[in-house]
Amino acid sequence: MAKISNRFWFMLHGWVSLPIWLLFCFICLTGTIAVLSHEITWLTNPASRALNPNDLPEKPVSELMTIVETAYPSAAVTGAMTLEPYLVNVVMFSDADKPFAMAYVNQYTGEIQQINEGMTFVGFIRSLHAWLLFPWQSSYSLGYYLVCSMALFMLASLVTGLIVYKRFWRSLFAPKLQLNQGKKTLLADLHKLSGVWSIWFIAIMAVTGLWYLVQAIFWHADIDIEPHAPLVAAEQLPFVQKSDAKPAVPNVSLTQALTLAQTRFPDFQPSYVMQPEHNRDMYHLSGSGDHIFYDQYSYNLSINPWTGEVASATSPGTMTGMQTLMHIADPLHYGTLGGIWTKIIWFIFGLILSGMSITGFMMWGLRNLRAFKNASVPNTATDLLEEGC
């Protein structure tokens, strides 16, 4: 009975992994590249590097946006992004000949190093990994569901693999890799050894992937995990005469809004800043703080541009359980919680996980190829009897 049970788990482990091995391997490889996508951009695009040879202090985001407004007087600057310290800041704007453009502005020198009007490598590789570039229809993408569903197969593969591989913990202390026992044995040892050392990583990928699946279902059902930012009350808007061709200028500048945000949250570091899009819109400020397990958007503030009132503010200390899951999933999934060193660790184990899908398929292929060859060998005695008849 024990042998039958073990055979069942072994077959289940194979079938939950192998039918989708090609797609799974592709998703693993693109995710592995996405982990170091910022660093790859730094290596391949000199204009993205925030060089600071004179050791200058970092300029505030509002000043960088003013630099772009000065360089492009007819442009509408909509927002800015702060990335890694060694990458330039990105200022988003639109102009008559540029429907959507991104200015790479060195936050130390204030120099505009490049204008990008297309998709960035970071945006491309993360979109390819997250939803396979499937189109978004309303609030859902079929590709996003497809990628997130891989978490179910990953979790099933982890559980069945641990059941099949008895006393798996021995490989942690006495790893075994037999190089001279044939291809099948070598592949099996590589697969088992990689799996045991990657248990923690597979578990993190599976759990965060399941959360992304839940998040996709929420989006599709129009269930908001975080509330929408409020609008400015109509009575708070300044009175503008019809004869006045100039739009009213907000009483509170972006610089003042950032100061208000840092007064509210002293450890606030802006990551994403959006200007008001219309007269009832607000400044939308997102950033990070001293919490390493939270993403760079864990602090969110909406500030009234007419009164300076902080209309809404959320931080790790005020989040609900669902909001907490939403903001810790990305650092765990992409390994950004510890900077470049955890990214490298995630990159290495991403390659290992990709290799496991390949070795698992090769083992399955060798086993089935051997079974096919055995089935195709004719039974000599039976053939002679048939010829005699």
Rank of each mutant, 00 (worst) to 15 (best):
T263Y: 09
P53A: 02
L162C: 10
Q256H: 12
M322V: 14
I340W: 08
G118T: 13
K192A: 10
E63T: 12
R126Q: 07
V61G: 01
Y86V: 03
T314N: 01
I27G: 00
S302M: 06
L172C: 08
T160V: 09
I115Y: 02
L237E: 04
C389S: 07
T44C: 10
L258M: 13
S312H: 03
I67R: 08
M102P: 02
M205P: 03
D244K: 15
S17P: 01
H333Q: 04
I348N: 03
D295N: 15
T320S: 15
S94C: 02
D97R: 02
G360N: 09
S149M: 15
G123T: 03
I225S: 03
F134Y: 12
A96T: 02
V77E: 00
T109Q: 11
L366W: 04
Y212A: 14
I340V: 11
G209S: 09
S171G: 10
A206C: 09
A234Q: 10
D295G: 13
A229R: 06
L132F: 02
N106I: 04
A174R: 15
P230H: 04
F268C: 08
Q181R: 15
K373V: 15
W306R: 11
R367W: 09
F93A: 04
M1F: 12
L179E: 06
D330K: 15
S302C: 02
M92C: 02
A174K: 15
S171M: 11
N52F: 00
D330T: 14
L254Y: 02
E386T: 14
I27S: 09
L337N: 07
M356Y: 06
S5Y: 08
S138L: 04
D281Q: 05
H333M: 04
V105Y: 04
I345N: 02
G335P: 10
K246H: 11
T160D: 08
W219K: 14
K184P: 05
